[in-house]
Amino acid sequence: MADYSSLTVVQLKDLLTKRNLSVGGLKNELVQRLIKDDEESKGESEVSP
């Protein structure tokens, strides 16, 4: 898992935009949104054959 907390808000928003996720909120919220997306993506890849 990436260390999103070391990134700037601009970098976080860029990552969120690329994933089609909301870019609104405080830095901590942006980090949590990326972590949640990582976990959901990981779960999907494990279920797929």
Rank of each mutant, 00 (worst) to 15 (best):
E29Q: 07
K36V: 11
L34I: 03
L30M: 10
S22T: 04
D3A: 06
D3C: 06
L12E: 01
E39T: 10
V10W: 06
M1L: 09
R19T: 02
K27C: 00
L12S: 02
I35S: 07
E29D: 14
L30E: 05
K27E: 05
A2M: 15
S5R: 09
G24I: 13
E46N: 09
L16Q: 01
G24K: 10
K42P: 07
E46H: 14
I35C: 10
G24N: 15
R19I: 00
V9W: 06
N20M: 09
S45Y: 05
G43S: 14
S6E: 08
T8I: 00
D37G: 06
V9G: 05
D14T: 11
S41E: 09
S22D: 14
L34W: 00
K18F: 06
R19M: 04
L15C: 05
E29P: 01
G24V: 07
G43I: 05
E46A: 12
Q11V: 05
L30G: 03
Y4W: 01
Y4V: 00
L26A: 11
K13C: 07
K27I: 01
K36W: 05
L16W: 00
D3G: 11
L16N: 02
V23R: 09
L26C: 15
E39F: 10
E29I: 02
M1G: 05
V23Q: 10
S41L: 10
P49T: 10
L26T: 15
V10R: 14
G43E: 14
M1A: 07
K18C: 06
G24A: 15
K18Q: 13
R19A: 03
G24C: 13
V47D: 15
I35Y: 05
L16R: 00
R19G: 02
A2H: 12
L7A: 04
T8N: 11
A2Q: 14
D14W: 06
S41W: 06
L12H: 00
T8R: 04
E39S: 11
R33T: 02
L7Y: 07
L30F: 03
Q32S: 11
V10F: 08
L15Y: 07
G43A: 13
N28I: 05
S6R: 07
N28Y: 15
T17R: 12
A2I: 15
G25K: 01
G43C: 10
T17P: 00
L26G: 15
V31P: 01
R33L: 02
V9A: 08
V31N: 01
V9C: 08
A2R: 13
K18L: 08
V23P: 11
P49Q: 15
V9P: 09
D37F: 12
G24Y: 15
L30Y: 03
L21E: 04
K18P: 01
L12A: 02
M1Y: 00
L7T: 03
L34C: 04
V31L: 07
L21I: 01
S6A: 04
V47I: 13
Y4A: 00
R33D: 02
A2F: 15
Q11W: 01
E39Q: 06
G24S: 13
S5Y: 08
S45F: 05
M1T: 08
L7M: 15
E39V: 11
R19C: 01
E39C: 12
D38T: 02
L7I: 02
S45V: 10
E29L: 04
L7R: 04
S22G: 10
E46V: 12
K27W: 03
G43Q: 09
E44R: 14
V47P: 14
G25M: 02
K27A: 06
S22V: 07
S48A: 06
D37R: 03
E44P: 08
S45I: 12
S22Y: 05
E44Y: 10
E29Y: 00
E29G: 03
M1W: 02
S48N: 10
V31K: 06
K13S: 06
D37S: 14
T8Y: 00
E46G: 15
Q32H: 04
I35V: 12
K18T: 15
R19H: 00
E40I: 15
Y4R: 01
L12G: 03
S41C: 12
D3R: 09
S5L: 09
V9R: 07
S45R: 12
T8G: 05
Y4T: 00
R33G: 03
D37W: 09
K36D: 10
S48L: 09
V47Y: 13
S41R: 12
L7D: 01
A2D: 11
Q11A: 07
L12N: 04
K18Y: 04
V23W: 08
T17N: 12
K36I: 07
L12D: 04
E40V: 11
E39G: 12
V9K: 10
M1S: 12
L34G: 03
E46K: 10
G25N: 04
Q32F: 00
V31M: 06
S41F: 08
I35R: 10
I35N: 08
S6Q: 14
D3T: 07
S22K: 06
L21A: 03
S5E: 13
S5W: 10
V10Q: 15
L26Y: 11
D38E: 04
L30K: 04
N20Q: 09
V10G: 14
G24M: 12
Q32P: 04
S48Q: 08
D38L: 03
E44C: 13
L34H: 00
Y4L: 02
I35A: 08
R19Y: 00
L34N: 00
L15T: 05
Q32N: 03
L12W: 00
T17W: 08
N20P: 01
G43W: 07
E44A: 12
I35K: 13
K13P: 00
E44D: 09
M1V: 03
L21R: 03
S48E: 15
R19F: 00
I35G: 04
N20Y: 03
Q11L: 03
E46R: 09
V23Y: 03
V23F: 10
K36T: 11
T17E: 14
Y4K: 01
L16I: 04
K13T: 11
M1I: 04
D37Q: 06
N28A: 13
V10K: 14
L21F: 02
S6I: 06
A2N: 15
L7E: 04
L16F: 00
G24T: 14
V9N: 01
E46M: 12
A2S: 15
R33C: 03
E46T: 09
V23I: 13
S45C: 09
L21W: 00
T8Q: 05
D38R: 05
K18R: 11
S48F: 06
S22C: 13
D3F: 11
L34F: 01
K13L: 05
Q32G: 10
K18H: 08
L21T: 02
D37K: 06
D38Q: 05
L12R: 04
G43D: 13
N28C: 05
T17F: 14
G24P: 04
K27F: 01
D14F: 06
G25L: 00
V10N: 06
Q32M: 08
E46W: 07
D14N: 15
T17L: 13
D37V: 04
S48G: 07
L21Q: 08
